[in-house]
Simulated assay, not measured.
Amino acid sequence: MTGCAGEGAPVERPPYAMAKADLGMQADSTTFTEFPTAPTDPAPGGLTEGVVLRVQADVAVHQSPGGPVIAKLPAKQLNNPTWVPVIAEQGRWAQVLLPSRPNGATGWVLEDDQVERARTPYVVDVEIDARRLTVRRDGAVIGEWVVGVGAADSPTPRGRTYIMAAIEETVTKFSPIILPLGIHSNTFSTYGGGPGTVALHGWPDPSVFGQASSDGCVRVPDDALRLLAKLPLGTLVHLR
C-alpha cells in the first residue's frame, strides 16, 4: 500500500547536542524501516492522555531518556506532517510510538523547540473479533460501525497504534482516502510493493463489512471513513 509548544525546566544540552550532530548517521524512523532494538510498547492495550507531538525537523530517537540514539524521526511521513502519540513522559522526555517495524516499537524524544505539543480528544477502538469500530471523543461515543477485518490467514495485527497519515488514493479506486496506521501486517512484508502498512480505508462492496476477509487492513463504511479522515494525525487507535 503504496493531523502548544512544550514547556518545562531546562535540561542538560550537551548530550542532546551530540545526538543532533550524529543524526546524519541514523536511519529515518518511517513505515519503511525496521528497528529491532527499539523499546517495545510496555502497555499495548493501555490508554494515553491524548498528547501528541509534531516533529518539525529531524529529531533524535533515543533508547531511553538521554540514552543512545537509535533513529531519527523525520518531519514527514508519507508526505504528511509527522505526529506521534506520547505513551509516557519523564520531565521533558517523551516516549512515543514509532511508525516502524516491529509492531509496538517505541522511542524517546526530547521536547525542544523542534517539537510541537498538542492534544487530541479522540480514540479509535477496533474490536477485531466483534468486527466493530468505535470512535470516542473525551470518552463519549460519537460513532460506531460494523467493519471488515483481516482474514484468518492474514489477520489484522493487534496492539496500540495511531493514524499516521491521510492519503488521497489516485491509483486504485477502492477508497477515496486511505489512513495508514503506525502498524504492519504480521503476514505480509509488502502490500503491492509498499511496506505492508495496515490502514483504515473504505471498500466499494458493503458485503465485506462484518467479514474477516481483508489482507489485514480494516475496511470501513463511507460515513465512518468521512469521520475518521477528520481526526487529527497521531490519534490513538486500539486494535484489540
Rank of each mutant, 00 (worst) to 15 (best):
R132T: 15
V146Q: 15
L110P: 01
D41L: 07
R13H: 11
T235V: 07
V59Q: 01
I167V: 14
P85M: 03
V69R: 05
I128Q: 10
L53W: 01
I128W: 06
V84Y: 00
A130F: 13
V126E: 07
D58T: 12
C4Y: 12
G3S: 13
P99V: 11
P65N: 01
L239Q: 12
A130P: 12
A118E: 15
I128A: 05
V220C: 03
T156A: 11
C4H: 13
G24A: 05
T197M: 07
A38H: 04
K230P: 04
D113W: 06
D129L: 14
K72A: 04
A224W: 09
V124W: 03
T82K: 00
V237G: 09
C217D: 09
G202L: 02
G192Q: 07
L233F: 14
V51I: 14
I177P: 02
V84H: 06
G196I: 01
T31A: 15
W93H: 07
D222H: 08
C217H: 07
T190K: 09
T170V: 01
M18K: 14
V109E: 00
G6R: 11
D129V: 14
A151P: 06
T48M: 09
Q90V: 04
E168L: 01
G107M: 11
T190M: 06
S189R: 14
P99C: 04
E168Y: 01
S175Q: 01
G8L: 13
F174H: 02
V218H: 04
I128P: 05
A21H: 07
V51C: 08
L231T: 03
M1F: 00
P232V: 10
A199C: 15
H201D: 03
T187E: 12
G46L: 02
A5W: 14
I87W: 02
V198F: 03
P74F: 09
S175C: 00
T134E: 10
D215M: 13
G159L: 04
E127K: 14
A199I: 01
P195G: 12
Q95R: 11
S185Q: 09
N103C: 02
G104D: 08
H201P: 02
K76A: 15
T170D: 03
A38F: 03
V147A: 10
A19L: 12
P15W: 06
P10N: 09
V52R: 14
L225N: 00
R117M: 10
I70M: 04
G104P: 02
M1D: 01
L200T: 05
G216R: 03
L78D: 10
R119I: 14
P121N: 09
L133D: 10
P176Q: 05
Q114A: 12
P44V: 08
F174D: 10
S207E: 12
N186Y: 06
S29R: 03
A71Q: 06
G107R: 04
E168W: 00
I167R: 02
L227P: 06
P10Y: 11
I177Q: 07
A212H: 08
L73P: 00
V146Y: 09
T40K: 13
Q211L: 15
L97S: 04
R136N: 08
V96D: 08
N80W: 05
I128Y: 04
T82V: 06
W145K: 11
Y162W: 15
A152V: 12
G143N: 13
T190L: 08
G46N: 01
